[in-house]
């Protein structure tokens, strides 16, 4: 028996909420980046679910693009993180308020 697409969409929404909560609440920069990955992953799940529902494979292509963007984003984010840590010996995102101009 088949599961309706709604189940996947609800799961995707819950994962997105968990990720967004992590981005807002955690102060460790590494875990904030991981929560961002969680949000992107939730969006990917929604893409694939809609792609299955409509029988159109554009969603798969878009998901591959999204993975590429996620990889680039993680690479740049982690480079910034290494740079911040070597300057300040801390991963607390609240020290980044010193960036304000």
């Amino acid at each position: 028996m088949n599961i309706g697409i709604e189940h996947y969409l609800v799961l995707s929404a819950i994962l997105f909420v968990i990720g967004a909560y992590g981005v807002l609440v955690r102060k460790n920069l590494i875990i904030v980046l991981m929560s961002l990955e969680l949000m992107l992953n939730a969006a990917n799940l929604a893409f694939i679910a809609f792609s299955r529902a409509s029988g159109d494979m554009t969603g798969h292509v878009f998901m591959i693009m999204s993975i590429t963007v996620a990889a680039a984003e993680v690479a740049v984010g982690l480079a910034l993180l290494v740079s911040i840590y070597s300057h300040r010996e801390s991963l607390d995102i609240d020290i980044l308020k010193l960036l304000k101009g």
Partner: peptide
Amino acid sequence: LFLSNTSVSEMEGFG
């Protein structure tokens, strides 16, 4: 939307 019908995509080579 087009929720609930999942039989559309039993096509050849999907995925």
